[in-house]
Amino acid sequence: METRDKLFTEEQYRKQLAGYSKRCKQLESSIMEIINAEKEHIQLYSAPNSNVAYNKTVTLFGCKLNSFLTKYSVGEDMAKLKDDYNNLVKTLTNHWTITGMYVQMLWMLSIGIMLDTDEQNIRILSSMIDNENVNDALYDFLHYCPKKLPHRFS
């Protein structure tokens, strides 16, 4: 495997990936703890459990996105990256809002186009944007871009 981004060595990227993996597992465990507490009607924080779980899920998405970008940089196989991208779309679903996550959606649309993701992923992301009634020229270009490009989305 050849490193795509020469900013760091493969060893440095692998160290970053290990850190992201550990952090993602911690966040997933914490989210499950909150979900289980909520089922038992136990309040774990001063803020409502649902708010804390939402915030941790947004943080988890950021951690997974950073992990994805690091895997791309280190030269990970594109087929594996497509699987990771599909999981990113699932993580983002029902948690994205225009407030505070504008750049993340730009990344997701751009990465989807780069990976030539399946049309369903672009539809999911597009519907998230449409559901927020976002009026943004860059989003419009990117989430309609696959329909204009001469490849399988046409």
Rank of each mutant, 00 (worst) to 15 (best):
T3K: 12
D5L: 10
L7G: 06
E10P: 10
E11W: 01
Q12T: 05
Q12E: 15
Y13G: 04
K15T: 13
A18E: 14
G19E: 08
K22Q: 14
R23L: 07
C24I: 12
L27A: 03
L27C: 05
L27K: 01
S29W: 04
S30G: 06
I31R: 02
I31V: 07
I34D: 04
I34S: 03
I35V: 11
K39M: 06
E40L: 12
H41A: 14
Q43D: 14
L44H: 02
S46L: 10
S50K: 14
S50T: 10
N51I: 08
N51E: 13
A53D: 05
N55E: 13
V58Q: 09
T59K: 14
G62V: 00
K64R: 15
L65D: 01
S67K: 14
K71V: 00
S73H: 10
D77F: 03
D77N: 15
M78Q: 13
K80I: 08
L81V: 01
D83W: 01
D83S: 11
Y85M: 06
Y85T: 00
Y85L: 05
Y85A: 05
N86G: 12
V89D: 09
K90G: 03
T91K: 13
T91P: 02
T93S: 12
T93D: 10
T93P: 00
N94C: 10
N94T: 10
H95P: 03
W96H: 07
G100P: 07
M101P: 06
M101Q: 15
Y102H: 15
Y102G: 08
V103R: 15
Q104R: 10
M105D: 04
L106Q: 06
L109W: 00
I111T: 03
I113R: 09
I113T: 06
D116Y: 02
T117R: 06
T117C: 14
T117Y: 02
E119L: 04
Q120N: 11
Q120H: 10
I122A: 08
M128H: 01
I129C: 06
N131F: 03
V134A: 15
N135A: 11
D136K: 00
A137H: 06
A137M: 09
Y139N: 03
Y139E: 05
D140G: 07
D140Q: 07
F141Y: 15
Y144G: 08
P146V: 00
K147D: 11
K148S: 09
L149N: 04
L149C: 05
H151I: 06
S154F: 08
